[in-house]
Structure formats: C-alpha cells, structure tokens
Amino acid sequence: MKIWVDADACPKPIRETIIKAAERTKIPCTFVANHVIPLPKRLNITMLQVESGFDVADNEIARRVRENDLVITADIPLANDVIEKKAQALSPRGELFTTENIKSRLNIRDFMDTMRSSGVHTGGPAALSQADKRAFAGHLDRILSKYGQNNKQ
C-alpha cells in the first residue's frame, strides 16, 4: 500500500493528520501538487511537484496509483479513476468513495457543473468542520489498521 495525496487543495489540518499516520505506520506517502508543500523529512514521506495546469496532479496520481493504494482527494473524477483501479479513495472531509456511491457523486458533480456554467451561483464548499476532521481521521485509521492486519497475515 502507498498513500497518494492530491495536495493542491488538501487542507492543512488534514495534511497534518496524514503525516502523523504515515509516520506512525511507516507506509509510503506521496503528496502531489503543482507547488511545494512543506513536509517533514522522513524516508516514507515525499513530495512530487508537477507542472501547473488543469488536472495535472490528478492525472499523475491516476497514472501512478496501484491496486490497494489509498488516494486522498476531493476530486470526484480522480476518485472514480482510483476506484476503477481497485484502489481506495477518501475525501478530506472523511467521505469514503466506493463502487456503490461514486457514480451518484459523479452525477451530482456533473449536474452542479452544468448549473454553474449556465450562470447559477452554487456557492463553494462549507468550511472544514471538526466533524469532518474526525470523520477523516476515523476512516484513515480504519483503512490503515485493516492494511496492517492484512499485512501481518
């Protein structure tokens, strides 16, 4: 397992949670962004800086992700690509994307995109809440614990 982080829009508190988890579990973790992200110097925590541009980081993650990897992203199309590769996708708000929910999430995203392009102001996402942070940390811990248990067998 490797953890991939779509780091361009990853909130700092979530990034800190990921770093702590990677340090604790020693699982390789790569933050992918088009700008430098300050990270601690650890052998298993790396930064992959990509060129600026629409979906460049997402495309790089989709290209590199392998079965059983974990991708942290709020990007629904990237989450769909990840699931199709039999990897896991978790949003920074703690939503675990699955084969059961990803198609409806894509439909909602496409509908909202259509609304915005027709001039309807849909607003942005709400601020990251304590409940979001707890949901994320809980899902991350369960995924990494399950990986650790499976790895021992």
Results as ranks from 00 to 15, higher is better:
Pro40Phe: 03
Arg64Glu: 05
Ile72Asn: 06
Asp58Pro: 00
Glu100Asn: 12
Asp132Trp: 13
Leu39Ser: 02
Ala127Asp: 12
Pro92Arg: 01
Ser118Met: 09
Glu51Phe: 03
Ile72Ala: 07
Gly124Gln: 13
Glu84Met: 04
Arg93Met: 10
Gln149Met: 08
Ala137His: 10
Ile143Ala: 08
Glu95His: 09
Ser118Tyr: 06
Ile72His: 07
Ile45Arg: 02
Arg42Asn: 08
Ala74Met: 04
Leu90Cys: 02
Met47Gln: 03
Lys146Ile: 05
Gly123Ala: 06
Ala89Asp: 07
Ile61His: 11
Met115Val: 06
Pro40Cys: 05
Ser118Ala: 05
Ile76Trp: 07
Asp113Ile: 01
Pro38Tyr: 03
Arg105Lys: 09
Gly53Leu: 01
Ala74Trp: 00
Asn44Val: 06
Gly123Tyr: 06
Ser145Gln: 15
Asp141Met: 09
Lys103Ile: 11
Ala89His: 09
His139Glu: 15
Asp110Met: 01
Ser52Asn: 15
Leu90Gly: 07
Lys41Ala: 02
Asn107Arg: 15
Pro40Arg: 00
Glu51Arg: 11
Ile108Met: 15
Pro77His: 12
Asp141Thr: 10
Asp81Asn: 15
Glu100Ala: 13
Gln149Tyr: 10
Val50Cys: 01
Arg66Gln: 14
Thr122Leu: 09
Thr122Ala: 04
Ala131Pro: 01
Ser104Cys: 08
Ser104Arg: 14
Leu96Trp: 06
Ser129Ile: 10
Val82Tyr: 12
Ile143Tyr: 09
Leu96Ser: 03
His35Gly: 00
Asp75Leu: 12
Leu140Trp: 10
Glu100Phe: 04
Glu67Asn: 10
Gly124Thr: 03
Ala126Met: 00
Leu70Val: 04
Arg105Leu: 08
Ala127Pro: 05
Ile76Cys: 08
Gly94Met: 03
Phe97Asp: 03
Tyr147Cys: 05
Asp55Lys: 07
Leu106His: 03
Pro38Ile: 02
Leu90Val: 08
Ile143Gly: 05
Leu39Thr: 01
Ala62Pro: 13
Asn68Trp: 13
Phe111Gln: 07
Lys85Ser: 10
Arg63Pro: 00
Met47Ile: 01
Gln88Pro: 00
Asp132Ile: 10
Thr122His: 08
Ala127Gln: 13
Ser145Leu: 11
Pro38Trp: 00
Thr99Leu: 11
Arg66Asp: 09
Val36Pro: 01
Leu140Lys: 14
Pro125Asp: 01
Ala57Thr: 05
Thr46His: 06
Arg66Gly: 00
Asn44Trp: 07
Arg109Leu: 05
Asp55Gly: 08
His121Glu: 14
Ala127Asn: 12
His121Cys: 12
Asp110His: 04
Ile102His: 08
Asp132Cys: 14
Ser52Gln: 14
Thr99Gly: 08
Leu106Val: 05
Pro125Cys: 04
Lys146Phe: 12
Glu60Ser: 02
Arg66Lys: 10
Arg42Gln: 04
Gln49Gly: 00
Arg116Asp: 11
Arg63Lys: 11
Arg134Cys: 04
Lys146Leu: 14
Phe54Thr: 06
Val56Lys: 13
Ile45Met: 04
Val56Arg: 05
Ala126Tyr: 00
Thr114Asp: 07
Val82Asp: 04
Ile76Asn: 10
Ile37Arg: 06
Leu78His: 01
His121Trp: 06
Arg63Asp: 00
Ala74Phe: 03
Glu67Trp: 04
Lys146Met: 12
Asp110Pro: 02
Ala127Lys: 15
Asp113Ala: 02
Gly148His: 10
Val71Ala: 06
Ile143Trp: 12
